[in-house]
Every structure is written in C-alpha cells, then in structure tokens.
Simulated scan of single mutants.
Amino acid sequence: MTPTVPSAASAEIAGQALAADAPFFIVMNAGSGRRQADATREVLERELGAAGRRFQLRVVDDPRRLASVARETAAAACAQDGVLVGAGGDGTLCTVAHAAYDAGCPFAVLPRGTFNYFSRDHGIPADLEQSTRLLLDARAYPVQAGFVNGRMFLVNASLGLYPRLLEDREIYKRQFGRSRLVALWSALLTMLKPHRHLRLHIEHDGSTTEIRSSTLFVGNNRLQMEQIGMPDEAQALEQGLLVAIAPRPVGRLMHLWLSLHGAAGRLSDSDHVVSFTFERITVTHPSKKRKSVKIATDGEIAKLRMPLEFRVSDQPLLLLKPEPTVAEANRS
C-alpha cells in the first residue's frame, strides 16, 4: 500500500482515515524479555481479536535482524493495505519507522521502552491496552523525521560525549536492570569521567562555523526540548526545523551543572550552551584523518563516515495517533 501523502496543513486538521479492515503487522524487539513479548501477544489477541481485526506479530530475538525483519514486514503491510507497527523503545520504533517510511505505508506505535519520548510527544498512551485500542480508530498524521547520512532519527541524534553516555548506560542496565533511575545514575558517573572536546566545522546556510564542544546534540522531539527548558527550540520543531545544541568547552563539574540545569528545565538560561535551528547542516572535522565517528540515533549507536549531513526528512512519516487536541492532552 502506497498512501497518498496529504499536505501537512490539511492532514493536521483531519488526518488520513484507514480502511476499516486494515490489518496490523507488528514488529517487536524481544530484548526486554520473552515475558514482555508474551504479555504483548495476549493483549493483541484480546483487543484486536475482539474487534475482528487481523494482525501478525513478529518477535525479533536477535537485534541484528531487526532492520531486515522490519523491511520484510513493511513489504507485507504494503501488499495487504495494512499498517506497520513498532513495539518497543525509541530505538526499536525508529528502526521500524524507517522501514515504514521507505515502503510508504502508515506507521503505528506500541510503547514498550523506558522513556518513550516519541510516543509521549504524539499523545500515544504508554499503557499497552490503551495504545492497542488506539490502533482501531486512529487516523494517520504526517510527522517529521530527521536523517543523518541516511540514518533516520525520530527523537535525537548526537556525537561526542552523548554516545559514550549511552554505551555506559547499557552496561549499567545489564547489571542493574532497565529503569530511569539506573539511566540517570549512569549518566552522572559518565559525566564525571575525563572527556575530550571535539573540534567541528558546521556548514549552515552558506557559512561555516567552528565549534569546540564535548558533544553535538540534534533534537527532533518537542517534549524533550520542553523538558530541558528550551521552549523556543521546541516550537521550531513544529515549523519543520531541527535543533542543534552544543555545550561550550567546560570542565566536568560545569558539565554536571549544565545537566542539572537541563533536568530542572532551565538549560536555556545558561550562557555555556550554543543552540540554533536548521533544515540541513554538514558537519566536518578539521583533521582529514578523521574518517568516521560514533553517532547515537534514538539510543542506537553506529559508526558513520564523515562528513555528516543532518537534515529534515523530505517527506513526512505517516503516524497513527490521536487527534491533535487529544494528543496534547495526553502528553506528559
């Protein structure tokens, strides 16, 4: 199925209705455990089965196969005028969303992660039963995605200290379990370690600027921007832009102080942070020896070759979500 993509303005008002019998093709990452996968299947059978809606659930045990399974399932969804559904955290959702975007079929979400920034930003309930029921009557609305060198991100992309923070967080999660408290504690410990400052050249609107920073963070999530205290930047996302944030070169204690400012929703008050909005930027390294760099996209880490091109998606992703007014009420 290749739906006609409506204009953003008209679709934001009415959304795109789906066929009443459109089947759901669900891809779930089993990284959180077989028990969660079994619980998800039980809810799907109860909620979708009672409504007489067809569905297929594919549970991926090997994370390395997630992208290929998502592409295969997206092709099946298109062939049967169905919807591709991602079940998992933001990283899983991004991988499945990319498959839906490339195939041209609608995308839906069953949040099963720790932070669930993408689903929360669009008013999709974290409760599995509620998000499953939403599939039955939600309309498809266009939402913005970001890309870095062809790799999609729905929430954020970054290089420098932030990918290292995510790698350390995964180590702590394997030891102490998946929770927000473990994630915050691991972040604190990582920021107290020694770290290098990057030298980056950023080409934007025909000019090149050099920055020195521990990390370059590119945001595409209004909720996340609002939570760290950058309301103007959050509003810019609604205007088809991405947000770049880079702390100035400061020591470890100041880094910790900036993080506390962000946690308190006051990052925009700091003079130690540079931020700007854009549709497209190119990031290079002054040293020709720097061939590749670690990039984190929605919590998943990969090595990409320099230069890095960050851009807004050419076409929107069609997402099943509540009507805009309901979505606003559901955000938390």
Rank of each mutant, 00 (worst) to 15 (best):
L18I: 14
A20M: 12
D21L: 11
P23E: 10
G31T: 15
A37M: 07
D38H: 15
L44W: 12
E47T: 11
R58V: 15
R58W: 12
V59K: 00
S68D: 14
A70W: 01
E72R: 06
A75W: 06
Q80I: 04
V83C: 05
L84T: 02
V85S: 06
V96C: 03
A97H: 09
H98D: 14
H98I: 08
A99F: 13
G104Q: 00
P106S: 02
Y117E: 06
S119R: 09
H122F: 15
E129D: 14
L135N: 00
D137S: 13
F153L: 03
V155H: 03
N156L: 12
L159Y: 04
G160A: 04
P163D: 09
E167F: 12
E167K: 07
R174E: 14
R178N: 04
R180Q: 12
L181C: 00
W185H: 14
L188I: 15
T190A: 14
P194N: 11
L200F: 03
S213F: 01
N220G: 09
N221L: 05
N221Q: 09
Q224W: 12
Q224Y: 09
Q224V: 13
E226P: 01
I228P: 04
I228N: 07
A234W: 09
R248I: 01
L253D: 04
L256R: 05
H261W: 15
G265Y: 12
D269S: 14
S270V: 04
S270G: 06
S275H: 15
F278A: 02
H285T: 04
R290P: 12
D298K: 12
G299Y: 13
G299E: 06
P307H: 03
L308R: 05
D314Y: 05
L317D: 08
L319H: 00
P324S: 11
A329Y: 10
